[in-house]
Simulated scan of single mutants.
Amino acid sequence: MNEDVPQEITSLVGREVYSNNGVFVGQVEDLRLDLDTETVTGLALGSLNHDLFHGRAAGANGVIIPYRWVRSVGDVILINDIIERMKNTDDDAQAVA
C-alpha cells in the first residue's frame, strides 16, 4: 500500500489495539478529533483488556488513549506499552462512561 495515499479515518474503527509487547489493549470504537487542525488526537477503545485497566476504568464503557501513543497502524494498531504509559504520565487514558 502506498504510504502517501491518505486513508479514511473511519478505517481505524473496529481495529484491535495491542501494546508493542503484544498485549491486547482493546478495540477502536470511535476517534477523538481536533477539528481546527484536522487531526486525530485520540482513540476511543471498547472491548477492553480488563487486566490492564483494572481499577482505572471500573464501570466505564471504554477509555480514550492519546493518539501520540500510536506506534504503527496496519491490520492492527500498535501502541507504546500501555502499562508503562499509565504509570508514568499525568495524561493517562481517560475512562469513558
Rank of each mutant, 00 (worst) to 15 (best):
S47W: 08
K87I: 04
N61G: 14
D36I: 12
R15C: 14
H54I: 01
E3M: 13
A95Y: 05
S47Y: 07
D75T: 07
E38R: 08
I79T: 09
R68K: 08
A60H: 04
N61Y: 05
V70D: 09
I79N: 00
A60K: 03
Y18E: 13
F53K: 07
L35V: 15
E3C: 10
S47T: 13
D30C: 00
N20V: 01
G59L: 09
D4F: 14
R68W: 11
H54D: 15
V73W: 07
I83T: 02
D34N: 13
R85W: 03
L48R: 06
F53V: 07
L43C: 10
V73K: 03
N49W: 07
E84W: 10
V5S: 07
V28R: 08
Q27P: 05
L52V: 07
L48S: 00
S47A: 14
Q94D: 02
F53Y: 12
L35M: 10
S11D: 14
I9W: 15
A93R: 00
M1W: 09
V63Q: 06
A57M: 02
P66N: 12
T10P: 02
I65W: 04
R85K: 02
N88S: 15
V5R: 10
D30Q: 07
F24M: 12
N88R: 08
I64S: 08
V40C: 14
R71T: 12
D36G: 04
D81V: 04
S72R: 05
A44T: 05
N2Q: 13
T39W: 06
Q27A: 06
